[in-house]
């Protein structure tokens, strides 16, 4: 019987393996949702994506050869589902977040800054957005971000720098990465 993170998962046809899979999956749901929400800017679409990613993960879990990569692997599945969600029928319905021109008058500077940042993130392409969300919002180290994205650490770093320059052109990259 194969083990992933110390839990037997090889026999996916039994009730016990479903229970074990639940134990594996539970801690991954919240980061998966945060990733999907930051990518899609729509809480309902984000939960649907996480649900769908969970089914996919159940199907393909036995193929995961390195149990230590479970979180990165699952977030990679979520990221792919987000890409498909934006490509597919959801695209028209997904609330990308905000209109181009904000007309809301608010006294809270912080709120406006948050809205500006969300809008700037929404304008990034999928891969750039994925890297910045994983790094800045999910607080993942660069090597794990690279594992999710499926590229080398160097390539991920270059993409992260490029994306930061787009998000904050007036701030030095190293300053922004703090």
């Amino acid at each position: 019987m194969e083990q992933v993170a110390g839990i037997d998962v090889l026999d996916m046809s039994g009730a016990a393996s479903e229970h074990d899979f639940g134990d594996l999956l539970r801690p991954l749901i919240e980061p998966g949702f945060r990733l999907a929400f930051a990518m899609l800017h729509d809480p309902q679409a984000a939960e649907d994506v996480v649900q769908d990613a969970s089914f996919t993960a159940w199907r393909k879990l036995a193929r995961l050869d390195d149990p230590s990569r479970l979180r990165a692997w699952f977030l990679g599945v979520v990221a792919n589902k987000c890409r498909n969600a934006r490509r597919g029928r959801w695209r028209a319905a997904v609330n990308i977040g905000l209109p181009d021109e904000l007309t809301v008058v608010s006294n809270e500077e912080r709120s406006l800054q948050g809205a500006d940042l969300r809008r700037a993130v929404a304008r990034l392409n999928h891969d750039d957005r994925l890297v910045v969300v994983l790094y800045f919002y999910l607080d993942m180290p660069l090597d794990e971000v690279a594992a999710v994205v499926g590229t080398s650490v160097a390539a991920t770093r270059a993409r992260l720098y490029r994306s930061v320059r787009r998000l904050r052109p007036d701030v030095a990259v190293q300053e922004a990465l703090k």
């Binding site: 912080r110 800054q113 809205a115 993130v121 800045f136 990465l177």
Partner: peptide, 8 residues
């Protein structure tokens, strides 16, 4: 930027 992300 990390703090901004979390806040936003």
């Amino acid at each position: 930027l990390r703090t901004d992300f979390h806040a936003a």
